[in-house]
Amino acid sequence: MSTFRLAGLGRLRRLQEDHAAAELARRATDRRGADRRTSDARDRLAGTVLSGTSDPQSWRAAVAARAAMSATVIAAQAAAEVAAEHETLAQSQWVAARKRSKTVEKLAERHRDEEQVAELRAEQQVLDEMATQRAARRVEEES
């Protein structure tokens, strides 16, 4: 049985696929964290109320705090969008790596199938030769 000449390439493609899958998992974790931080920031913003105080400094401080929280929500949303884009890119890279890996796997499978057919063909030839020799001996014995 001959060795599959692209076996090394197959191992490389599987390693690349594994790396892409790990990167995708990391990016998905990053995106979930960014989504959680966005949700937390929104909840904190929704929890702030402007008190009806008549003190102008307290009012300005409350407005400034609310504006800062609003900016935090906007920043968290932007970070979540970037994380989602990175996850989408990682997903497409994993799909491409999987396709390359699958192509080599199919070639290896075809090689194994061809090897098996060749082995069966050789076995059949041996059996046919044995049957031919046995028939020839019978003819000799009968004559």
Results as ranks from 00 to 15, higher is better:
residue 71 A to I: 03
residue 124 Q to E: 13
residue 140 E to W: 11
residue 117 V to R: 04
residue 83 A to P: 04
residue 101 S to I: 00
residue 119 E to F: 04
residue 32 R to V: 09
residue 13 R to H: 06
residue 15 L to W: 10
residue 18 D to I: 00
residue 80 A to Q: 09
residue 140 E to Q: 13
residue 100 R to L: 12
residue 54 S to H: 06
residue 112 R to I: 03
residue 36 R to D: 08
residue 87 E to W: 03
residue 12 L to P: 01
residue 5 R to K: 11
residue 28 A to V: 05
residue 70 S to T: 15
residue 28 A to T: 13
residue 63 V to S: 04
residue 106 K to P: 02
residue 32 R to E: 15
residue 70 S to Y: 05
residue 50 L to W: 13
residue 123 E to S: 08
residue 101 S to T: 09
residue 129 E to C: 01
residue 124 Q to V: 11
residue 43 D to I: 05
residue 97 A to K: 00
residue 67 A to H: 02
residue 66 R to G: 07
residue 1 M to E: 12
residue 68 A to T: 07
residue 52 G to E: 10
residue 82 V to T: 15
residue 98 R to Y: 06
residue 3 T to L: 15
residue 9 L to F: 10
residue 108 A to I: 06
residue 80 A to M: 02
residue 38 T to C: 10
residue 42 R to E: 12
residue 99 K to W: 03
residue 34 A to D: 01
residue 72 T to G: 13
residue 16 Q to Y: 02
residue 131 A to E: 10
residue 134 R to W: 03
residue 37 R to T: 06
residue 59 W to F: 10
residue 78 A to P: 00
residue 102 K to L: 07
residue 43 D to T: 09
residue 64 A to V: 03
residue 19 H to D: 12
residue 22 A to I: 07
residue 9 L to I: 04
residue 79 A to F: 02
residue 74 I to T: 15
residue 34 A to E: 03
residue 20 A to K: 01
residue 138 R to L: 14
residue 51 S to P: 04
residue 48 T to D: 11
residue 55 D to R: 02
residue 45 L to E: 03
residue 54 S to G: 10
residue 137 R to F: 09
residue 105 E to G: 02
residue 19 H to P: 01
residue 109 E to W: 12
residue 135 A to D: 07
residue 73 V to C: 05
residue 111 H to L: 02
residue 35 D to S: 13
residue 7 A to P: 00
residue 133 Q to W: 04
residue 7 A to Y: 11
residue 48 T to N: 04
residue 91 Q to L: 14
residue 66 R to W: 07
residue 30 D to H: 11
residue 93 Q to E: 02
residue 18 D to A: 10
residue 19 H to A: 12
residue 26 R to Q: 05
residue 84 A to C: 09
residue 34 A to I: 04
residue 122 A to I: 03
residue 80 A to G: 08
residue 126 V to S: 12
residue 131 A to I: 04
residue 79 A to N: 09
residue 13 R to Q: 10
residue 108 A to L: 08
residue 66 R to H: 15
residue 106 K to C: 02
residue 31 R to L: 09
residue 11 R to T: 02
residue 138 R to H: 01
residue 129 E to F: 09
residue 128 D to K: 15
residue 25 A to H: 08
residue 28 A to R: 07
residue 132 T to F: 14
residue 75 A to T: 15
residue 136 A to F: 07
residue 60 R to L: 11
residue 64 A to W: 04
residue 28 A to P: 03
residue 99 K to T: 10
residue 106 K to T: 06
residue 36 R to L: 04
residue 1 M to G: 14
residue 18 D to E: 14
residue 41 A to P: 03
residue 72 T to E: 14
residue 114 E to Q: 10
residue 121 R to A: 15
residue 138 R to Y: 09
residue 47 G to S: 07
residue 137 R to N: 10
residue 58 S to A: 12
residue 3 T to K: 14
